[in-house]
Design a protein around this nucleic acid. Structure first.
Length: 126
RNA sequence: AGAGUCGUUUGAUCUGUCGCUUAUUGGGCAACCAAUAAGAGGAAAGUCCGGGCAGCGCAGAGCUAUUCACUUCUUAACGGGAAGAUAUCCGUGAGGGUAUGUAUAGUGUAGAAGAAAACAACCGCCCCCAAAGGGUAAGGGUGAGAAUGCGAGGUAAGAGCUCACAACGACAUGUAGCAAUAUAUGCCGUGUACACACUGAAUGCUGAAAGUUCAAGUAUACCAGCGUAUGAGGGCUGCUCGUCCGAUAUACCAGCGCUGGAGGGUAGAACGAUAGAGUCUGGCGGUGACGUCAGAACCAGAUAAAUGACAGAUAACCCAACAAGGUUACAGAACCCGGCUUACAGAAUGACUCUUUUU
RNA sequence: GUCCCUGUAGUUCAAUGGAUAGAACAGCAGUUUCCUAAACUGCUGAUCCGGGUUCGAUUCCCGGCGGGGAUA
């Protein structure tokens, strides 16, 4: 059975959780064009909650921001097995934020590589 | 054929793999799963106007303030739109831009220059023996603007002082037009700009983060007043009458109801929120904006925010041609409508204009 | 999303619709010094963009672009 879903339940929505994630205790892994911030949140059946952010500083137009968000979402969706299987084994939940860093549009292939690198680095740390 | 002007329409297509949101149906205690259907724009943008909708306020009348201002029409409404009027500027032209209420009244202001910016006299001219004083807007130079222009008469010199011909404006009458206005005649008048003034019309304030409901929560702490059916208070949006709603327990404890003051806590969910001044097709009326009648379909509804990602093929364009390669605009709903403004690769199409060539 | 404010030299600020847009610092040149600094003298340099009103616009009006703020 395929795990390549990314439904609304896996979105990080709660304001409290987001504030906690962006506090100083969270870990960060740098990459380009995307940066990853994570926090181990405790035991839960869902292995990960994800937030994607592309700020107005990098892209002025909403069209470009939407495209960047969609590219990140797709590559996470296709590569999330990297992180799900070890976490499901431990029964831990991780909160993740992807932050866009580039000022220019980037091809999906490069984003895919970057996300894969970030996720495997994250599994190594946990 | 080329170059343009004013409109109108459109805004690449197809296939595969993996997904997202909503609705319906089926299964499941539930989480969820499966199937089917639908899923960004002409500007969704800017937030510049106008409405719907919501809360609060509100008798009437008056005062003040703001906005608008040629005419007629259009509309739910508008500072928008349509068709016209006058003036002016740009363009060979088709056309395009801008302005416009009233008042010959009154008040105020107008740097520098200039004698003077409106109760005016510097030079000049004239009266005068001269001075003093007076008359004078023909001529000079300044300026955006200098007493409407020009000719004749007239005069000491001059002056609408008088007359003819013109320019502009107000009024009266006739004609055309719904009207702005045009035109003819008569009569009266004459510096420029802005502001105040006057007239007419419109306008309560705040915006969906409005507002309503529910859950959760140690606790609505504390203070004051009123009330518990002989009823505090509230609704029916001025008041009165009328009518409706309206409070637990009661031996004690305790979180009884309403009003005012003064605090505390939570950061959740649902409604609002998508059937509409709507869309499409056709007929009729109108120069047109638009109106009206008939028929058809239901056509995004998310919530840190879905409507996608990747691969391939086709089409159009660019590099003189083919191939390779590149490009395929502007741009992403957030309560909903009507406009305006701004951005926009290309394609189609209607009417018209100019230039050249041919017949 | 909604509602406000704002834009002047390289920088920080002035200027009631009126003559060549002013001041400080900065920059450049010169004087001074053996050289530098300081000081003195002179010069360069700007009204965000496009229209309109006006005789005349940094100022008033309209549209655009940019910057900042408030609101749970």
């Amino acid at each position: 059975m395929s795990h390549h879903f990314f439904s609304k339940k896996e979105h990080l929505v709660s304001l409290q959780d987001i504030n906690a994630l962006f506090s100083q205790k969270s870990g960060a892994i740098n990459g380009y064009p995307v940066r990853l911030i994570y926090r181990v949140a405790g035991n839960n059946t869902l292995p990960a909650l994800v937030l994607i952010s592309v700020s107005k500083r990098h892209f002025k137009h909403a069209v470009d921001r939407n495209r960047a968000k969609r590219q990140i979402r797709e590559s996470y969706r296709l590569n999330k097995d990297i992180i799900w299987e070890p976490l499901a084994a431990k029964k831990q939940q991780v909160h993740i934020a992807f932050l866009w860093l580039s000022d220019t549009p980037v091809a999906s292939r490069e984003i895919n590589l970057c996300i894969r690198k970030l996720l495997s680095a994250l599994t190594a740390r946990i």
